[in-house]
């Protein structure tokens, strides 16, 4: 079980959090024309890197804040966590 440092609450066990995917994905702006391919990429396609991955986690059983985590997908090492307003 991972130990994740919520930037608001401190270190907590993984079972307080839920995973929210790649944090580098940006939702296309509302009301803007989006080509089919870009929209497909946004909805369905994600990189699946072995190694460093910046991701979103939600502290559901805590402060209920979403935040960013830089994690190694093969070793589970967590290098850094940050608030949404901060850079990883």
């Amino acid at each position: 079980m991972l130990e994740i440092k919520c930037p608001h609450c401190g270190s907590r066990s993984q079972n307080e959090f839920s995973y929210g995917g790649d944090s580098s994905v940006k939702r296309p702006e509302l009301g803007k024309e989006v080509p089919d391919k870009d929209w497909d990429d946004f909805i369905y396609f994600r990189n699946n890197p072995r190694g460093k991955h910046s991701e979103l986690w939600h502290h559901v059983a805590g402060c209920r804040q979403w935040f960013k985590v830089l994690r190694d997908t093969s070793t589970h090492e967590i290098f850094k966590t940050a608030k949404l307003t901060e850079e990883l």
């Binding site: 839920s18 979103l56 939600h58 804040q65 979403w66 949404l84």
Partner: peptide, 13 residues
């Protein structure tokens, strides 16, 4: 609730 929080915090802060 998680869905709403996601859009408020991550997409449209």
């Amino acid at each position: 609730l998680a869905h709403l929080e996601y859009y408020l915090q991550v997409v449209w802060p």
